[in-house]
Design a protein around this nucleic acid. Sequence first.
DNA 1: ACCGGAAGCC
DNA 2: GGCTTCCGGT
Length: 625
Amino acid sequence: MISTLTLLLFPAGFAFPEWAYKPESSPGSRQIQLWHFILELLRKQEYNDVIAWQGDYGEFVIKDPDEVARLWGARKCKPQMNYDKLSRALRYYYNKRILHKTKGKRFTYKFNFNKLVLVNYPFIDMGSGRGVPQSAPPVPTGGTHFRFPPSTPSEVLSSSEELRSPGVFSTVARRMARGSVSDCSDGTSTNSELEEAAGADERAVGPDRAFRGLLAPRLPHESMFRFYAGHPNPAGLARPAPRVHPEPLSPFPVSPLPGPGGLLGPTLSPALSMTPNPHLAYTPSPSLSSPMMSSHFSFNPEDMKHYLQAHTQSVYNYHLSPRAFLHYPNIVVPQPHRPTPEKPATHHLHGPPMPLSLSQQPGAGEDGHPSPFKFKLQPPPLGRKQREAGSSLAASSSSNHSSSFTGSGPIAGSALGGAPPKIKVEPVSDLSEEDVEVTDISEEDELNQNSEDEEGDMFPHLARSRHHHLYNGSSSSPSAPPPPHINPEDDPDDDEEVFKTPATPPPGSGSSLAFPLIGLKTEPGQAGPVSPGGTRCIPLKLRFKRRWSEDQRMEADGERDEAEDKKVRAEGEEQEDGKRDGEEDNGGGRGVILGLMLPPAPTQRRASSELQRATAQLSLENTGC
DNA sequence: ACCGGAAGCC
DNA sequence: GGCTTCCGGT
């Protein structure tokens, strides 16, 4: 199976896009983007008096708005820049879900790292230990949000932006594979380090890279990365570790989330080169160092059990969606103890009857091109006016903005039975939907946006209608090291954190379990296969959702909304959405797999670190102007 | 302060 | 696409 997996994983060979390393070349823009810049400032101590991390993970406060504006203006050669304009730009990020305002706190904003990462750096290799930079945005609890690629090619194409289209990735990948990473870096940019590292990695581990790339989005966990790491290059590794030390200011927790992901990592990697290296040494958390970390991981029941258990624990710890639970046939994982009494122990990961085999996935790797991942920012919500107006446009059809979410819980409510405007039906049908899902995804994003939840993140689809929403209770998770200040409420909402797991693993999870990636690939036609078996989970899911919803509400109640509420609007979900929703929930077929793996946070972190690195080199001010 | 529409620039 | 600029509104 591994081989199969491998193939799937490395179909085309994804690589990290060049732009990932260069802020300047960030997608969509030639120049440095504001958020990169902010991150850059954040990571530099010298600007601590100007802007600094504060409060929750990802939350930062602009201590000196004028100065920040000045710096930004300098960087962009916009002397006329001022905080008013800068803040407008920041607000512009709200729609993109990259940032949101921390209500009630002056000049305080919060990154939604997940989104950033996913969106912009889906394939980044967070690799290694480059270490979470101090400035790394915190992504404590969170899960990552990811979206699945559209199932159909057409969809893919249609997708608005597929960011860097697959083609791009593949191209890059190839390049990288060759070790020509340097391309990216012409001297201009930043990164020598990154590039070098990347290059090294690639050379050393050709496929791995690809692998990583793929995984990254879904498998956030650091451990995962680590394992694949195997990166020969020391440089990257070395640095990070040291840096990791917690900064007072930095929101980042020192330690990465312990998570299941780590466990998986090994799993995945076996095939890959797992050479022990410093990386491995750098284990995020003790927990990771489980046996699983050991060089070899087998899918045998015991191991799986172990893994699952760990995963389950993590799910609980992170308040992940039930969907996150891995399913492994025949193995029942004992439930972790959860603080919360309520949580039902019920879920055992039962395997759905039909295990998916990787093979099922249709084109998975085969198509020559990599699966189309389309990670994109969500479309901005419709303008309020429009919405209000009832702009029909919304495209969607019917979208009415349904109500949105009342305070309590948007989606959750719906799930619970609240009347959700949109969703309503839970389609039990589920799986099949995937395609739909995918499809939807592309477009849906726009529609969905709603943010219902706290998150509002990027993957509305997932989140939205469906039940999904689970955000991690940020505060709670024990494992995650709390930031200095944790506010109970704060984060919960934060969307960022929300972890939407894609889907539960489909049935056959055993195998699937392992690879999210696979799922990706699958998309294309996969619906068929999945459907058969997979779906049955639904009921459980629903149940879980409810549970979660309840829990979430209880725990989080507050905030989530924050930003998102407003946006909710978009929702107009279409009927289809509803369907999809169901699906998604399910774990939608393919996605499912992914879900398993992902431990959210890490990824983000890594991504962030990468970003930081990338940005690090930029000069804050641009003299050139 | 903060929000977000609209128009415009690159 | 990603702001920048301007601006009316809360």
